[in-house]
Computed example of a mutant assay.
Amino acid sequence: MVIAKCRECEKEYQLNSSDNLGDFQCECGGELDYVDDFEVKNENSIKMKRIHWNTLILGIIVTAFLGFLLGLIGIIIATLCVGYSVDKNYKNGAVHGALAGFIGGFIAVNIGNVINIILPSNTNTEFGLLLITGTLIGITIYGFTGAICGAIGAFIKQKRS
């Protein structure tokens, strides 16, 4: 099955792969276009087929920058924007938000680690272990926060339209 979307009202229809798109019209009279991002396996299962790379790369950069400057608040703001800018599907928003949170968080945390190594405030013999543990915990928190905020951003976009 494939998904077709109305150009006017954006209502979605599930069609068989063998159906001719020109044979169908929306209830509002608008023309239908195929939606390339998803493949429908059954009525309750939608699988994402492609990642929006431009949005994801920009999201990673913004997430790393805001995450470094503002910490978790920056990650929340950045991944909400990533989820909002992808599309109206909360699963797709969650995937993009999680990727931006994990990768951007990794960059932000490691920038902080490099600064701590260059400018140590105290001498701690267990510094390496704390650095690795803190990095893993931070990246995990940023990734999960990114997934939740990405889904919320997509949900907000869906409700606004």
Rank of each mutant, 00 (worst) to 15 (best):
T133C: 01
I111C: 05
G128R: 01
L129G: 13
N122D: 07
T123P: 01
I118S: 01
N113L: 13
V114N: 04
S121N: 07
N116T: 09
I132E: 10
I137R: 14
I137L: 15
E126W: 01
I137H: 06
G138R: 08
P120S: 07
I117W: 04
L131K: 04
T135V: 09
S121A: 04
L136N: 02
G134F: 06
G138E: 08
I111Q: 03
E126K: 08
L119P: 01
P120L: 09
G138H: 03
I118K: 00
L129C: 03
I111M: 08
N124W: 02
N110A: 12
N113R: 12
G134R: 06
L136M: 14
I139A: 03
N116D: 13
I115S: 02
G138S: 15
G138Y: 05
N122V: 13
N116I: 00
I115K: 11
V114Q: 05
I139Y: 03
T135K: 09
I115H: 05
I139D: 01
N113P: 00
I137F: 13
I118Q: 00
L130D: 09
N113K: 11
G128E: 11
I111N: 04
L136R: 02
E126C: 00
T123S: 14
I139E: 06
L130F: 09
I137P: 00
L119T: 07
L119Y: 12
T133A: 15
N110I: 14
L129H: 03
N110M: 15
N124C: 02
L131D: 03
F127G: 00
N110K: 12
N124K: 06
T125M: 06
G128A: 15
G134L: 07
I111F: 12
N122G: 05
S121D: 11
F127Q: 11
I111S: 09
L129K: 10
I137E: 12
I117S: 02
I117N: 01
L130H: 09
L131M: 15
G128V: 15
I132Y: 09
T123E: 13
I139F: 04
S121W: 00
L136Q: 02
N124D: 14
N116K: 10
I115A: 06
N116A: 13
N110Q: 08
